[in-house]
Design a protein around this nucleic acid. Sequence first.
RNA 1: GGCCCCGUAGUUCAAUGGAUAGAAUAGAAGUUUCCUAAACUUUAGAUACAAGUUCGAUUCUUGUCGGGGCUACCA
Length: 596
Amino acid sequence: MSVVALIKDTTAKAIKQLYGLELLPSEILVNETKPEFEGDYTIVLFSFVKQLKKSPDSIGTELGNYISTNYPNLCSSFSIIKGFLNLSITPTYWINFLQQNVANTAFGTQPSNGEKVMVEYSSPNTNKPLHLGHLRNNFLGWSIAEILKANGYDVIKTCIVNDRGIHICKSMIAWQMFANGATPQSTNTKGDHFVGDYYVQFNNEYKKQVEALIATGVSKEDAEKQAPILKATQQMLLDWEAGKPDVINLWNNMNNWVYEGFNATYTTIGSDFDKVYYESNTYLLGKSIVEKGLEKNVFFKKEDGSVWIDLTPDGLDEKVVMRKDGTSVYITQDIGLAEQKQNEFNANQSIYVVGDEQNYHFKVLKLICQKLQLPSADGIYHLSYGMVELPTGKMKSREGTVVDADDLVDEMIAISQHKTEELGKVKDFTEDELKSLYNTIGLGALKFFLLRVDPKKKMIFNPEESIDFHGFTGPFIQYTHARIKSILRKFSNDFITTSLSASIQHSLLLLEKELIIQLEQFPLIIKEAAEFHDPSKIAIYIFELAKIFNSFYSEHSITNAENEEKKLLRLQLAQLTAHVLHKGMALLGIQVPDRM
RNA sequence: GGCCCCGUAGUUCAAUGGAUAGAAUAGAAGUUUCCUAAACUUUAGAUACAAGUUCGAUUCUUGUCGGGGCUACCA
């Protein structure tokens, strides 16, 4: 149990003993004591005042006395300042904690809880290369999956590829018109970029044709509908749905080019999936659901044959679930896919990592599933994250203001190479080791940058300023880890299992204690990160830990400690710190090097 | 029009209704005969505005101003 949980439990017991009042531990507010006051953890007394009808000071005195006399191993002394009860935790408690966990490779993680969670993320569109927004999505999805695993969940990572529809046909038409049989191989272009370029060409040509039509006197609205290239695209979609062989062939070819490109990017950034769904296989799903919904009167049919659901009683709109031509729409496909996933995996929860522009969509999705009483309904959770914006506003592919994922990754790796070479600390590395190190640092900086902020909030990326390698960054933590490792390398691992003598508690220094206190919080942070679906809690936590360690490192020597006992204590502190940094970064999908 | 989200140092981000609003970076000043200076130490700088709720408000309520999203028989 964490100290905070222990303090809450103890306080609840004390209040029951002293006043006969039953409180849940969760109703008790415990914070770290502000550094300017004496003590380690603080109980906020104000919330008890009303129920106990006593002054904060007298409650504090009675509580403090009770806890310090009945739990002398936990609390050595206390003070009350302005309604806050500051507890000093005994050094023995901290030393015991360190001894119990220094050799525990599972420190921070929970055993299996038997629950299954699906995490859907990435979900790319096959006619656009990945951009910065996709990176945030991928890193978030991956990290959430890892965090859930660390909390004992069985996690299945999935991806739905948006591989069909009118937009895909646009790239295909443009390729037919302009490519002269070119391929990614013949042009030496990455497949996803190759196809993406034709999508851009389509839009350029379309614009030209519309302008030409307007010049002949056609209204803008009509011109946008009549442009020959658009007509051809619409025809192609019909041909695709009819299964016309040459269209299907082209579609297959172009998609395979894209997948080759995506896979290269996924490999570089370390993303993968346990199960990939393709919309071309799932777009017909959901029809039986529409019928079921009609039977149950959840849906109703309009005169033209289209099927709707009325969500006005829930404060939303009427929503179409099947077109008049009998085809299913986006939301219906999603209901179908949710059911398919449920049948296939029977997970307790299904998390969708999707941008906050789709908040409304997922609200509707969950609501409809609930009204249909589908088993998947209650497990649907939309992990809504904010857009990555530029200082000038939203990224727009049409205006060429998109930050390309591959470009950015390459740039980050190049910068890390440049900085590493400048510092010249790893001149003995082989080519392969260097390459891997540049990747680790460059991607570490990028991932940390995107994961260190609250996922719910939109964030701003300024392409003019490169992502930092100093301060609240991935490389800062990687560097701290490498520094620890270089010390630990000099010692045999015996120190991990050696017991500290009891007397060490009398000489625990402030920075040593701060380090232990921070280390002790790791399991709690992992739990909170899962509960709030928020990897930034881990990023902030390991940064704090690294900072404390660095202060400690510059203040006190490990190798040349005052005596052998101190050296042992500090080695163990360094060992556990390295483990937590390593594990915490792994939860963000970031590796830590032993040297850099 | 309706619904939803957001306004915190120059900049990028923190702060389950709790103590004097924390960091990082940029700025100023320092630290290397000693475990990696991608580090450490010191310093200056912010809650858009106005009311309300209360012991206490960046946080909750209302209004004003500013920014964004959604409101497709596209996905």
